[in-house]
Amino acid sequence: MFAELLQYLFAGLTSGAIYALAGLGFAIIYNASHVINFAQGEFIMIGGMATSMMVAAGLPLPLAIALAVVVTMMVGVALEKFAIEPARNSDVVTIIIITIGASIFLRGLAQVVWDKEFHSLPAFSGETPINVAGATLMPQSIWVVGISVLVIVALWWFFNRTLFGKAMLATSFNRLAAQLMGIGVKKVLMVSFALSALLGAVGGIVVTPITFTNYEAGIMLGLKGFSAAVLGGLGNGLGAIVGGLVVGIAEALASGYLSSAYKDAVAFVIILFVLFFLPNGLFGKKGTDRV
């Protein structure tokens, strides 16, 4: 009984960590531009696909990972430079639709450059399951959660301890004032896309040994990351992390105790619930600033 629950929690934490990284990706771009980047899932896909293709071509895993992260970040910057920036005077809704177009384009490109097959990666440190109180824990799950925690800590440090990170935050709080301080909002936007791509790529790479990946893998992961971001309160970093874990665990429990057929529905039921009853999300702004 307890072992069963523990088993589901392990599964939930593993996918929750990936949703949290994707949710943070949504939050960073949302903060810099109020745009919801629906190509976030494609960053996850490109990270995983690029790594497994390079490993298949004979590159050592660490090198393949590093190159895949760089490639994904370049895709993120190119997306900003060639699709978002030329439209920066348009409506936010227009730009969001552009990101949907970009996500379809990237999926198509992945089919052409790579293929339509499923791909995997070897687990980073073997596949011998670890027995924890009757539940089995795959070593790769520890990698997923551990690396996610590391990335989140690094991100926290960047936004709270470096001047440029603070400048990015300041831009999200008050764009006009940020410009008047001499903060280049173009650069902020570009870095936000690079960072979001990095988060997506890392998530996509560490999860590929468990879930496999193909050109379409980003759709679901991206939408679940979006649910995480909405649940936590769009633009709130802590919210995205908590939201990701809640979505992941709810999904694992539902597929364990109800039916795995409902697994993917859980995230969307959560979105509907949030939109009806908690439109600001768990940690969303309530607008208490004094004027």
Binding site: L169, A170, F173, N174, L176, A177, A178, L180
Partner: peptide, 10 residues
């Protein structure tokens, strides 16, 4: 700027 425009949460 007009209206002060401080970075409220910081």
């Amino acid at each position: 700027p007009e209206g002060r425009q401080v970075f409220g949460p910081m």
